[in-house]
Every structure is written in structure tokens, then in C-alpha cells.
Design a protein around this nucleic acid. Structure first.
Length: 105
DNA sequence: GGAATGACCATGG
DNA sequence: ACCATGGCCATTC
């Protein structure tokens, strides 16, 4: 992967306003690397030290949380709710309302 | 070089 | 709606 990829993703992530979330695939696509959703996930899981990014604003397709049950999922949900992200009854994010970019759904 | 892995996604049963 | 399968692409063993 070109180092560009990571920078792009991180840059995009920093541009996501509070109260909004984006998807792995969407993020990858915006970064200019469609079908690299897994790499976004991998990148976030191995975040370099020193870089502070709102990783919790990234969710799976359809607003699903990745790896539910794990610590980071709970933590993520709390953080998002605190920012005003609306969770549906099933525990998924309402992308139509909180998705970013607005048309990502 | 080949097999296994991953904070994924879409489709089919 | 849930589970299983296939596809995806780079990294790691």
C-alpha cells in the first residue's frame, strides 16, 4: 500500500464532523481505493502511535458496529452516542441521518 | 512462492 | 432475519 492511502484515510477521518459516522468501504472509496475496506479496518486496528483520529466514527456497512461484544465496540458506541449519533433499536447507526458524507447511504 | 489472516462486503439459501 | 460462501487486497508467517 502506498503510504498515501493511510494518510488519505486519516485525513478524511479527521474531516468527519462529530455526530456523523462513515463506513469502511465508503472511506476506502473516498480515499481513492475502492474495495479496500479491509485495509481501512486493518489500519485503524494498528493505528500508529501519536496519531489521534476519531476511529470510533467508522462503522461497518449499513451502520453495523464491527466486532460487537468487544471492548472497543462498547467504547465506540458510548463515544458516538455522546456526540449525538443516533442508534436504531437494533444497535445500528442510522446512516441516513448520521452518515458521512451525507449520501453515503 | 504459498497459506493464513483481517475492526469488510455482497449475495444466496 | 440469520448463517454460510465467495470475493476482495495487502500483510505476515
Amino acid at each position: 500500500m502506498p503510504p498515501e492511502f493511510q494518510q488519505r484515510v486519516i485525513a478524511l477521518l479527521r474531516q468527519v464532523p462529530p455526530g456523523r459516522v462513515c463506513t469502511y468501504g465508503g472511506l476506502a472509496q473516498l480515499a481513492g481505493y475502492p474495495r479496500h475496506s479491509r485495509h481501512v479496518g486493518r489500519l485503524l486496528s494498528h493505528l500508529p502511535e501519536g496519531v489521534t483520529v476519531p476511529w470510533f466514527r467508522v462503522v461497518g456497512a449499513g451502520g453495523r458496529l464491527s466486532r460487537p461484544g468487544s471492548e472497543h465496540a462498547d467504547w465506540q458506541r458510548l463515544l458516538l452516542e455522546e456526540e449525538g449519533v443516533v442508534f436504531r433499536a437494533n444497535g445500528q447507526v442510522d446512516l441516513r441521518q448520521c452518515g458521512w458524507p451525507a449520501d453515503a447511504a
